[in-house]
Amino acid sequence: MNMLTLALAKGRTADDSIKLLEKVGIHFDDFSDQSRKLVFYDAAGLIKLIFVKAVDVPTYVENGAADLGIVGKDNIMEARKDIYEILDLQLGQCQFAVAGFNGEEPPKNNVLTVASKYPAVAKSHFQKKGVPIETIKLNGSVELAPIIGLADVIVDIVESGNTIRENGLTILEEMDAVSTRLIVNKASFTTKSESVHAFINTLQTGLE
């Protein structure tokens, strides 16, 4: 069996992902998201876990720097990488949504401006509807954009909708559902087939 490299997204679902791995018997004794360490080995010596920024997980996996990745669907959709997306780990469930001021007509003669951490997702959503848009890429506090007039609407992931409401915005349209997925490098799927399939099957038992 080959040792597999698993890229785990830092952030809100990291702890739950580790718990899921523990549940199926893959233990990382020294793991702590407070630690500055970025590489961990499981007790059985079969998995090398690298702890990376969520947006980078699809890149690591596509390039084969990691065989497997655990990351949110939001980042997968934005990155549009050539990878296998095998399992839904049912963690961090939320939803993409368009939000803005309620009742405000979209500008008639101007192109709709959309602020988002996910410009590619926003673009493809509005393209499907036949609405031309301009995107503004922001890295945080996206809700601010319509308030200060930087954009007409935002596209973001929404869990409870509290942040949106507290900033006086409304969800105008619900988009795709988001949750944490297991992604796999296509070459590893083929050339390290035995270990990769064993891992997928093990993880699957934790989901049932």
Partner: peptide, 8 residues
């Protein structure tokens, strides 16, 4: 595919 190389 080659082992250890990510592209076909």
């Amino acid at each position: 595919y080659l082992t250890g190389y990510s592209k076909p």
